[in-house]
Amino acid sequence: MPDLTMPPQKLADYLRKSNIALALSSTDEDAPLVLVNDSFCALTGYAEEDVIGQNCRFLQGEDTTHAMRQPLHDFVHGEGPDAGRFPVLNYRKDGTPFHNYVYMSRMRDRSGEVIFILASQFDMTGALQRSKVRKNDGTLYDALTDISQITREFGLAMQESSQLLADSVAVMARLTLDDPY
């Protein structure tokens, strides 16, 4: 029987190769990290050995509000859909704050039990300062909703943008859960 606290080797190799900052946690106890890639380390300033076994909340700091924390907490504890996007103010190892958009997906085994949470990290600090991303997100969501409605009339399907982003890496990762070794 495979060790469910560690990802299958194919999954680990795929995540490590990604240029997107990725973190994988188990669902045991306090959702400790079991894998982070080089992009995650570059984004946060932490080395892999500094973070494995810890919950990602170590990235939060004094200006990270309860309103930012609560949706992350709820997701990790199984509430809501299996994928989502969570804006949160995080801090690098050197104390520099950054606006992190965390895209998370629950990863289930064949029996349907959630065994991992995959988190993609995106530093949106510059984009928030330049373009008012939150307002644009609303406009984009409205446009995608309209487009989705139109495409359904032609028998096409389209996922919401946030879910698509959350699932983009997880799709390949989930395939490796069916063939773990």
Rank of each mutant, 00 (worst) to 15 (best):
residue 145 T to D: 02
residue 81 P to S: 11
residue 88 V to K: 08
residue 121 Q to D: 06
residue 15 L to M: 15
residue 126 G to F: 12
residue 93 K to V: 02
residue 65 T to G: 04
residue 53 G to H: 12
residue 110 R to H: 14
residue 31 A to E: 08
residue 68 M to E: 13
residue 99 H to W: 02
residue 115 I to D: 06
residue 102 V to F: 08
residue 146 D to V: 10
residue 96 T to I: 09
residue 72 L to N: 07
residue 75 F to W: 04
residue 25 S to D: 06
residue 37 N to A: 05
residue 52 I to V: 15
residue 28 D to I: 11
residue 111 S to A: 15
residue 94 D to C: 00
residue 115 I to M: 07
residue 25 S to R: 01
residue 136 N to G: 00
residue 142 D to T: 11
residue 93 K to Q: 10
residue 30 D to E: 11
residue 61 G to H: 11
residue 130 R to D: 01
residue 38 D to E: 15
residue 94 D to N: 01
residue 116 F to I: 06
residue 147 I to K: 08
residue 49 E to A: 07
residue 106 R to Q: 08
residue 39 S to Y: 06
residue 95 G to P: 03
residue 15 L to I: 12
residue 17 K to M: 10
residue 116 F to Y: 15
residue 93 K to R: 13
residue 98 F to A: 02
residue 68 M to K: 04
residue 80 G to S: 01
residue 8 P to F: 06
residue 73 H to N: 08
residue 35 L to A: 03
residue 69 R to Q: 08
residue 88 V to Q: 00
residue 136 N to L: 09
residue 79 E to A: 14
residue 20 I to V: 13
residue 63 D to N: 13
residue 14 Y to E: 00
residue 90 N to S: 02
residue 135 K to S: 11
residue 143 A to S: 07
residue 34 V to A: 02
residue 51 V to F: 04
residue 93 K to M: 02
residue 80 G to T: 00
residue 50 D to E: 15
residue 29 E to V: 15
residue 48 E to H: 07
residue 17 K to Y: 11
residue 90 N to Y: 10
residue 142 D to R: 11
residue 44 T to D: 03
residue 63 D to R: 11
residue 133 V to Y: 14
residue 35 L to T: 01
residue 38 D to K: 15
residue 90 N to E: 04
residue 88 V to M: 00
residue 121 Q to Y: 03
residue 120 S to W: 05
residue 110 R to V: 15
residue 138 G to R: 05
residue 53 G to P: 03
residue 114 V to Y: 05
residue 101 Y to I: 10
residue 69 R to K: 10
residue 47 A to D: 12
residue 46 Y to F: 12
residue 17 K to Q: 13
residue 72 L to S: 01
residue 116 F to E: 00
residue 5 T to S: 15
residue 107 M to F: 09
residue 21 A to S: 09
residue 71 P to E: 07
residue 129 Q to S: 14
residue 43 L to Q: 14
residue 133 V to S: 03
residue 87 P to W: 07
residue 125 T to E: 05
residue 14 Y to D: 08
residue 54 Q to E: 05
residue 99 H to V: 05
residue 113 E to Q: 09
residue 114 V to T: 13
residue 149 Q to W: 00
residue 38 D to P: 04
residue 130 R to A: 10
residue 117 I to E: 02
residue 119 A to E: 05
residue 118 L to V: 03
residue 150 I to S: 02
residue 6 M to H: 15
residue 122 F to C: 01
residue 80 G to V: 00
residue 87 P to S: 01
residue 136 N to R: 07
residue 110 R to G: 14
residue 99 H to C: 09
